[in-house]
Design a protein around this nucleic acid. Structure first.
Lengths: 146, 146
DNA sequence: TGATATTGCTTTCAATATGCAAGCAATATT
DNA sequence: AATATTGCTTGCATATTGAAAGCAATATCA
């Protein structure tokens, strides 16, 4: 289940894991949009197919970026949560959004542009910290994790 | 030739452009390894196929991230060079490498780990600036660009 | 306590992206 | 003039992604 790495370059190795259409989108949905169940992901605006979602979640789990667990009062609904290894992608996601903001609006004018983007442009480190802190608080509110 | 965007999210929109196996690898080869000709790219350690390389270079050009030009003394060899829009991906690449360094070594022990990585770990902003400055100097040494 | 709805998938098959190898025209080198 | 190099393109094979249906387990409702 490990990816096979093309070479020994750290840049390329990250892309061997993350360089596809979905891995970082799923991470973003967890971190930014608070998605945590299989259903949550299928309902997001990116409209991922369930078979792809299933396989990517398995990869993320195998890589230790996500853990799969449940709430004690519900035996059906699985929770997918970011581990520190997944949460550590926050600065990368922030750079993605900054680049989009600066260089993609010309060809994608409808891209969202609200108060969050202002905050991001004003102080990207604070923005990243806010995202991480919010996620950690969320985790703290689920006090039965492995 | 524009990508079609899945939705209006800035994170996802960046991945609509960059989220595949090769786009960022090619940018990295230009920025970090100084590759500039078609031949250069085919000889890199990632071993991209020539048809894929051709199509990705066309995309990068269409998106305005790369320009295709020649030296005045050589009518055959094309030069592919980063535009500001491509060069603006430096901080993103830096975050990719940092994440690899911190979280991928466990499953990819052979990943390179020399003086450059030390510099990167010590001061990522300085590292990014150094890369950008070096690339701009290189461009300045090709004084016949469009 | 059934009956129905929801969740979390898997399976099948179609479409698209990636990969390999060969080949070829234009230019550069000898 | 002959050969090598560069920058590709063109098939064709394989892998990844996608759409749709289906299904078992649990949860919710009457």
């Amino acid at each position: 289940m490990q990816p096979d790495f093309r070479c020994d370059c750290p840049f390329t190795s990250a892309l061997d894991v993350l360089g596809d259409k979905w891995m970082l989108v799923i991470i973003k949905q967890m971190l930014v949009e608070g998605k945590e169940t299989f259903k949550d992901f299928t309902e997001s605006s990116e409209a991922i197919a369930t078979n792809i979602l299933s396989s990517k979640l398995k990869m993320l789990e195998a890589l230790g970026m996500v853990i799969k667990t449940k709430r004690p009062d519900n035996k059906k609904t699985n929770l997918y949560l970011l581990t520190p290894k997944g949460l550590a992608l926050t600065p990368l996601l922030v750079e993605l959004a900054l680049w989009s903001d600066a260089h993609l609006r010309a060809i994608h004018p409808g891209m969202v542009n609200g108060a969050d983007m202002d905050f991001l442009r004003r102080d990207k480190q604070a923005f990243a910290r806010a995202l991480e802190d919010k996620y950690r608080e969320k985790l703290a509110a689920i006090p039965h994790l492995p």
